[in-house]
Design a protein around this nucleic acid. Structure first.
Length: 484
DNA sequence: ATTCTAGGGA
DNA sequence: CCCCAGAATT
DNA sequence: AATTCTGGGGTCCCTAGAAT
């Protein structure tokens, strides 16, 4: 590093040469930085290089180029994120939780394709946030979150700060790729040292980071990305997933090194087992593997359903579990009047999250699992996300009596009705305040009328103060002091 | 300076 | 994000 | 009979901005 500061040339020439040198150095270290590759310099030293480059570019604006690493961090913070439609829907994957289910998947694929044995790829399922990246003539143009699958938020300027996302591909082509943004465990831990309120887990840290309005802040977060698939790509002539990954890597995109081409489902399962062994040493979190039909032609033939492609599944590793005490069962009333029992738990840490509640779905679910108040229960986070009561531990002493599902609505006292052969119970009260509140919330929500500022608590207050009483009355609302 | 609310993501 | 139920589709 | 679609309902974390 000593020679970096020495240069006898005139200021201008020195500036120009040094700018080129700095850009080269920064790109070099960007390459080293991602994934597991151990960086050769500290973040501090890296920041020094970047600062010097920014300073020189400031002095010599005529030398600024769009693909300079200094352009990773944009100017002003954004006001909000624009909504961008996806040309091809960003679906999620169907999940499997056992090798048997993986075999079922294989059977179905073979049946649909009418083939004996299928070639699959197996990749790691990175536990992060998915994103879509659009390159125009080789230049990074736009990055979008998954959103609701049809449209997402424009997070271009945040993604540009991620050093493993090249601003320029090695080929001038139009291509949309998809990948997973994540925070490496080391970076997560180090960054947490700098915070008074530490992040709960790397995934939430990554998700939160991508929604900051100021890219300069995002740039400080240790984010990285693995590209794993194609989005909208006209004239993609490469015939398989495996070769596509190779090509993406050739373009300068970062593809996770652990993936394998497998002949038939048995090889798939073997490799999944290997992946599970890798898990502790990867340096980033994964929650399973992704199995894809290798041939893109076959993928096309299999097609997609409304939620997920038929040519891929996730195989999820067995979830971590914890035990805790079920303190209470409460009954919530939904907008349709449906009564849902919810378990209130003694808070317990599980997989980077504090769990204190879990849905019990309906009356029969409680019976089936024989769940009673004060029981010690086993919980997990299905899909590594949603708290779920797996079962009850045997009690040493006597237990409470079985839970009795209410026969009257806890909110309004009206009769509870459960129709013959149906699973759910409903409050029969036409004017149940809980149901009414939910209905108004729903009506105002983004998916319906998208009335800004009318969330749960505002609706609740308006109802409590008698300012509104039903959906129509929303429209005669007046500003404070104004008369109707 | 701290707490609450809305919206987004998994 | 997961899960469940019920209807629609094959 | 099996698969898919749709809708309802649930959990927790994070950011940003408003309210206190």
């Amino acid at each position: 590093m000593n020679d970096m500061n020495y240069n006898p040339l005139t200021p201008f020439i020195k500036g120009e040469l040094r700018i080129d040198e700095l850009r080269g150095l920064i790109r070099y270290h960007d390459d080293k930085y991602y994934g597991n590759a151990s960086p050769e310099i500290s973040d501090y030293e890296y920041d020094q290089l970047m600062h010097e480059l920014l300073h020189l570019e400031d002095e010599h604006p005529e030398l600024i180029r769009e693909d300079s690493p200094s352009r990773r961090v944009g100017g002003q913070p954004l006001k909000e994120f624009a909504t961008i439609p996806h040309t091809i829907a960003m679906l999620s994957l169907d999940n499997t939780y056992s090798y048997d289910e993986l075999r079922d998947f294989d059977i179905r694929v073979k049946k649909l394709l009418g083939r004996e044995e299928i070639e699959y790829t197996v990749e790691l399922k990175i536990d992060g946030v998915s994103a879509s990246l659009i390159y125009h003539q080789g230049e990074f143009q736009q990055g979008v979150t998954r959103g609701n699958g049809m449209e997402g938020d424009d997070i271009t300027w945040n993604l540009r700060t991620i050093r493993s996302i090249p601003l320029q591909l090695n080929e001038s082509m139009d291509i949309e790729v998809r990948g997973e943004v994540y925070m490496p465990v080391k970076g997560f831990e180090a960054f947490n040292q700098t915070r008074d309120v530490p992040f709960a887990n790397p995934r939430n840290a990554a998700a939160g980071s991508l929604h900051m309005l100021d890219p300069k802040q995002v740039a400080k977060r240790p984010l990285s990305i693995f590209i794993h698939s194609l989005g909208n790509v006209p004239n993609w002539t490469i015939p398989t997933q495996e070769q596509s990954l190779c090509k993406l890597q050739g373009l300068g995109l970062v593809v996770n090194p652990y993936h394998r081409l497998c002949q038939g489902i048995d090889e798939v399962i073997t490799y999944c087992q290997e992946c599970e062994k890798l898990r502790p040493d990867l340096g980033y979190e994964i929650d399973g593997t992704v199995v894809k039909v290798n041939s893109l032609e076959f993928q096309k033939r299999l097609g997609v359903t409304s939620r997920s492609p038929r040519w891929a599944v996730a195989y999820k590793f067995t979830a971590q579990q914890a035990t805790t005490i079920l303190k209470d069962i409460i009954i919530q009333v939904g907008r349709t009047g449906a009564l849902t029992p919810v378990a209130i738990l003694e808070p317990v840490e599980l997989a980077g999250v504090k769990i204190s509640r879990a849905t019990l779905h309906n009356e029969d679910e409680i019976k089936r699992k024989d769940i009673r108040i004060n029981d010690r229960v086993v919980i997990e986070r299905s899909g590594d996300v949603i708290p779920k009561i797996v079962g009850v531990l045997p009690a040493a002493e006597g237990r409470n009596a079985p839970f009795i599902f209410p026969t009257t609505c806890p909110e309004c006292g009206a009769m509870v009705i459960r129709l013959e052969g149906e699973a759910r119970s409903f409050c029969s009260g036409v004017n149940c305040p809980a149901g009414r509140q939910r209905r108004i919330e729903y009506f105002a929500s983004k998916g319906c009328m998208n009335i800004e500022g009318m969330g749960t608590s505002v609706v609740k207050q308006l109802l409590e103060e008698g300012i509104i009483e039903d959906i129509p009355s929303i429209y005669t609302l007046r500003k404070n002091g104004d008369s109707a």
